[in-house]
Computed example of a mutant assay.
Amino acid sequence: MYHYTDGGLKNVWLVNGYKQHKTPYGEGISINDLDGLGVAICLALAKKPSPLTGAEFRYVRSAGLMQSQSGLAKVLGNNEQAIARWEKSGKVPRWADKLIRLLYLARAEGNAPIASAIERINAIERAEKQRIVMKEARSGWASKIEPQEAADCGIV
């Protein structure tokens, strides 16, 4: 068995689905279907009966929800220092433990509104400064998002 320690996980072992090989730097491991493994680990963590450790919480946040500490803090109505502290100390509040599991399971099982909300937060995290350009049409107002640098900020 191979002890899988990605993301600081300490309790994940692979029975198969990997190959060991020699590299110029020592033993190497190739994992078949790495994306599928990540999903399976996140599902197992979300469904485990005991509280999540800090490393497990971080794994679900980063690999499962693809959220930064800042992004998850916005979802939870908290600050990124609190998220970092929970992950480092391993003292994850019960409510945050339950909520991250709920968010991951809803996203993994195809809950469109939750998946859409998480994707919007991810997009906000990656976005540069933008402006909303409104245009009146016969059918009503329409909006368009443009990068702030694309045009001057003067009023026309």
Rank of each mutant, 00 (worst) to 15 (best):
A117K: 01
A117Q: 02
R138P: 11
S139Y: 10
D152W: 12
A117P: 01
R131M: 07
V133C: 05
A142Q: 00
E128R: 01
S139H: 09
E136L: 09
S139P: 00
I132H: 01
I132Q: 01
R138V: 08
G154V: 10
E119A: 11
A142N: 03
A127N: 13
S116P: 04
G154S: 08
M134F: 10
E146W: 05
R126Q: 15
Q148C: 12
Q148V: 12
A150S: 11
A142I: 00
E146I: 05
E128S: 03
Q148N: 11
R120N: 07
I145G: 07
I118C: 02
E119D: 15
I118N: 02
Q130D: 06
E125P: 02
A127L: 12
I121P: 04
V133D: 03
A127V: 09
W141L: 06
I124P: 01
I121S: 10
I124F: 09
A115D: 05
P147M: 00
I145H: 14
I118S: 02
A137V: 10
A115F: 00
M134T: 15
K144I: 01
R126G: 14
K135Y: 14
S139K: 07
C153P: 07
I155A: 07
E119G: 14
A137Q: 13
E125C: 04
S143N: 04
I145T: 14
S116E: 08
I145Y: 11
Q148L: 12
G154Q: 07
E125H: 11
I124N: 04
A151T: 12
S116R: 08
A115L: 10
A117V: 01
R131I: 06
R138C: 06
Q148M: 15
I132R: 00
S143L: 04
A151F: 15
G154Y: 13
E136K: 14
S116Y: 06
A137P: 04
S139W: 07
E125Q: 08
E128Y: 03
Q130R: 14
M134P: 01
C153A: 15
R120A: 09
R138K: 09
I132D: 00
E125S: 02
W141A: 08
I145P: 02
I118R: 03
A123N: 09
R126C: 14
E136M: 13
G154P: 00
N122D: 03
I118T: 04
P147N: 08
R138W: 09
M134D: 13
E149D: 07
S139L: 11
E149L: 05
R131F: 05
A150L: 10
K135M: 14
V133S: 05
A150R: 09
E136R: 09
Q148E: 13
P147I: 03
Q130H: 10
N122G: 06
E149S: 02
I145K: 14
E119C: 09
K144R: 09
E149Y: 03
G154T: 13
I118P: 01
A137G: 14
E146H: 02
R131Y: 05
